[in-house]
Amino acid sequence: MYPSKFNYLAPESLEEALAVLAERGDEVKILAGGQSLIPMMKLRFAEPSTLLDINRIPGLDGLNRSNGTLSLGSLVRHNDVVKSDTAQANHTVASAAPWIADPIVRNLGTVVGSLAHHDPEGDWASVMLACGAELVLSSSTGERVVDIEDFLVDMFTTSCQPNEMVTEVRVTAHTASGGGNYQKLERKVGDYATVGVATSLELDDNGDITSAGIALTSVYPRNLKVVEAEQALVGHAPSDDLFAEAGRIASEACDPASDIRGSATYKRHIVDVFTRRGLAKSLGIAQGGQS
């Protein structure tokens, strides 16, 4: 299967790219890794009139840690994260990366592209929701920083405007007493999640939870941050009972559809199980003091 015809632009500077977006952003699709976009174009689910290939723009492939923040430029590939020591700064990010798509797709697909595509069954949005990420949206008039919760509007829709592109995602690094994890039930490598659960924890000197993040994949019309479950954890000493409570809240908060991957009842149950397991793993990392 082959895509419809389109115009192709491959600017060599960000300014040039943003100028194109300023001029005719609503007819443009940005091509980063293309691992979601191109299959959709081949199946003719997407027929953009212009593709703006950003792969030749220097400086967008930065994967850096500074002042407790991990930042990923829009050309950071999933496998860059898998292979990066720097990315270990956020355990949720690091543990999710190997679960994205398959190893070859990970060589091209990008984290930011996946967020901007906002497939409601995408894994990265849950990771970023659990970790409280921010996105940098650039346009020819400047840049603005948007919280992930405000960025993700609805399935396949974000608050990125036609004249803007996401140039970076920033996520807080875990401290030495923090931990995170991504649990994914998939039927095979490359499958969408039947259920995905992203978790993140920070502990204080007493070992009590000071901040918590929990977000779910594929069990709600979009990725779901379970604030109530997060709040139930904060200020408490971690325990199996506490995590079970968070699992229960998460499983009640989600609203999965029954489909070929399983019944709604099953998926709720897995949310419960994986939330508990994810929190236990996050706790293990936090208590192990790994950085």
Partner: peptide, 19 residues
């Protein structure tokens, strides 16, 4: 359809020649 592009395996059915 995998080939090595600058040494890295990539699926060429999901890339355009212009890329």
């Amino acid at each position: 359809c995998t080939v090595l592009v600058d040494g890295t395996p990539m699926k060429t059915c999901t890339m355009f020649a212009v890329q």
